[in-house]
Design a protein around this nucleic acid. Structure first.
Lengths: 183, 183
DNA sequence: GTCTATAGAAGGATAGAC
DNA sequence: GTCTATCCTTCTATAGAC
């Protein structure tokens, strides 16, 4: 009889790769390093993922799902558009303040592979476009606002992703100030 | 007499390397590529620069000098602290809107080599610390401001570096609004 | 002839892919 | 584990300017 495939292998490999990719950057991490941390053989890695780009795409998609779930929970109890905007920025700030935060995974990938249009780059760009669209949507529900309002919120979001843990609350306080007149 | 060494060789190599490093990222560019674009031999490259890290450090230092000169010219005619803050952000926005802009070279390097503490990383971190200190200095000269004022200006600056050319004016307009009461 | 420059191969390490 | 390719770096061979 052949050996039964372990059920959680793909997740084990993906979790190991995600941690390494985020901490050191995708380019800096080799496939050998991934299999070492994952504790599996190289053939098993290539059975589950077609290439390093495929593994990177799965890594970014994992982060996307984690971010979507975390944002969904944070926005669950915020019902009005201003409260939802505050909650959205506060959730990002919580992420920035988590130990080991090393910037936005999607922006980091696009910095590491500028001009590329492979699968992980498309995942990263799609996430950023969707995040921007979410800001536009919430600002549109705010009521009558100056034409630059959404751009300013997005500017704060972009700055927040580049912030240190100590600077993160500044963004939340500022967005709170900006949307409070609409509460 | 022996053949006279070409005078501008170091600058030629450095300019070629800087263009490649900024456009594609430091990790993505090989020394052979630098040699090819510079139009020189590998011997000459390693005679002028000790290693790839040394070349990367010289690249970041070149950008630092370019940025310092550009900022110096932009701030020359702005005498009051609020005008100088506006000019500082407007100069960055001009940089962002230049064709071929691919983010802040210093932040990009630190994203490509997280955790590293080699010479180019130190150049990058020193530049960012100095830029933040400059903001703090100018805000301190504004007069009595809320305690978060400098953090908010810095948040805009960080967001501006991550902006598209179309979004860049938002940052300038906002800073103008923020400092106008102090003019 | 002497020095510098380029071109290219070689070494040693490490990468991704099978 | 192996195979191929590429990385950075060094070294050799050769061409060209003085």
């Amino acid at each position: 009889m052949a050996r039964t495939p372990a059920p959680g292998t793909r997740d084990t490999i993906l979790t190991a790769a995600a941690g390494l990719f985020y901490e050191h950057g995708v380019r800096a991490v080799g496939m050998a390093q991934v299999v070492e941390v994952a504790g599996c053989g190289k053939n098993l890695l290539y059975r589950h993922f077609p290439s390093k780009a495929g593994l990177a795409a799965a890594y970014l998609d994992l982060v996307r799902r984690e971010r979507a779930q975390s944002a969904g929970e944070a926005l669950r109890w915020a019902t009005t558009p201003p409260d939802r905007l505050i909650a959205l920025v506060a959730e990002i700030a919580d992420w920035v303040r988590r130990p080991g935060y090393r910037g936005c995974a999607f922006r980091n990938y696009l910095t590491e592979f500028p001009g590329d249009d492979d699968e992980p780059a498309r995942v990263a760009r799609a996430y950023l476009a969707e995040a921007r669209a979410e800001v536009d949507r919430l600002v549109g529900q705010l009521g009558p606002v100056p034409p630059s309002f959404a751009d300013r919120i997005w500017l704060i979001v972009n700055g927040l992703y580049a912030s240190t843990p100590e600077e993160a609350p500044t963004a939340v306080d500022w967005v709170t100030d900006l949307v409070t007149p609409f509460r």
